[in-house]
């Protein structure tokens, strides 16, 4: 039994939370940039402390639970959302190590955590006892469970090529060629599924504000809302980090040290997520589900088939 790496255990959640917090500001600045605006630029230099100001505001808001809500579940839901995301980071090989970067079923662990994340949304929608929240929760459940399938299938290609579920091994396997080249199709499917998993725009139907108020978190305010909010941004970071790890060679790169490379690659993908939000309108719900089952499922199956075929041919 190896001793627990205390420093990463304490640091990783702090870093992730800080990142997610800053990301709220970064997103708004980037959206501003792409929409010919400034975004928040008043609090601190360039508006940097906007996230802090928002955090303070959320912290001091009344911690209100609707009288009609199922109180216990209502409080539990955002905690689940936060926990699952933070736990997922345990297996990401941020640098060479990470907390449990060597976990031999790391990828499965992440998929499991993401699966659990559905509960946060579904329970929030259910416990709120409000029609908008319930509809949002239902949509989220269907959407997230569906897209989990394609995500797992798309990852299968990577696992097949790397021959391991351990993320450290996968990174190591890309020291030559990044998997984005052989697994391009898988990368696209993974990104799309990642967007749907984190219910980010344009796939944010569970909280489509023009039809459902705020969807599953309509009834949430104060820091409980804040937890959903932070969990969403942490989710973005997670998916981006995962994409970096699985397809972009993790910390591998020239000259610069591995953590910097990792951060750079993750940052680009995060920026791409924000660009999607800035540029694309939201599809209809049936279009979203149609895309998943009619396009992404066959594509990811095709990817597994092709990868398998190539590997068999190589092996033979």
């Amino acid at each position: 039994m190896t001793p627990l790496p205390l420093a990463p255990i304490v640091l990783t959640p702090l870093v992730v939370l800080a990142l997610a917090t800053v990301l709220t500001w970064v997103e708004r600045r980037l959206l501003g940039l792409w929409q010919d605006r400034y975004g928040p630029n008043r609090v601190g230099p360039g508006g940097m402390f906007q996230a802090v100001a928002d955090g303070i505001k959320l912290l001091f808001k009344q911690d209100w639970v609707p009288p009609f809500a199922d109180r216990g579940v209502f409080v539990l839901a955002p905690a689940i959302g936060m926990m699952t995301v933070l736990l997922s980071f345990a297996v990401i090989p941020l640098a060479a190590g990470g907390i449990a970067g060597g976990l031999n079923v790391g990828l499965l662990f992440i998929l499991a955590m993401m699966g659990l994340g559905v509960y946060a949304v579904v329970l929030a929608g259910w416990a709120s006892d409000s029609k908008y929240a319930l509809l949002g929760g239902m949509r989220a459940a269907a959407q997230m469970i569906s897209y989990e399938v394609f995500m797992a299938l798309s990852l299968l290609g990577v696992v097949m090529v790397a021959g391991s579920f351990s993320l450290r091994d996968i990174v190591a396997a890309q020291s030559g060629l990044w998997f984005i080249i052989p697994q391009g199709l898988g990368f696209v499917v993974f990104l799309l599924a990642g967007i749907a998993e984190t219910h980010r725009l344009p796939f944010d139907l569970p909280e489509g504000e023009n039809e459902l108020g705020a969807g599953f978190h309509t009834e949430y305010s104060g820091m409980k809302f804040g937890m959903f909010f932070i969990a969403e941004y942490a989710g973005i970071v997670l998916v981006s980090a995962l994409a970096t790890t699985l397809y972009l060679g993790g910390g591998n790169g020239l000259l610069l040290p591995a953590p910097v490379w990792f951060a750079l690659k993750t940052g680009v993908i995060v920026a791409f997520f924000i660009l999607l939000r800035a540029g694309l309108p939201r599809p209809r719900y049936d279009q979203l589900m149609g895309l998943g089952w009619k396009v992404l499922l066959p594509l990811s199956l095709l990817n597994v088939l092709a990868t398998g075929t190539v590997m068999m041919l190589r092996a033979s």
Binding site: G32, D36, G279
Partner: peptide
């Protein structure tokens, strides 16, 4: 079209900003 939209949106990052401070 989607990709073009994304490109155009990205290019807006180099436009002048309309906001009056």
């Amino acid at each position: 079209d989607t990709l073009r939209t994304l490109l155009l949106t990205f290019l807006h990052g180099f436009h002048r900003r309309a906001t009056v401070q």
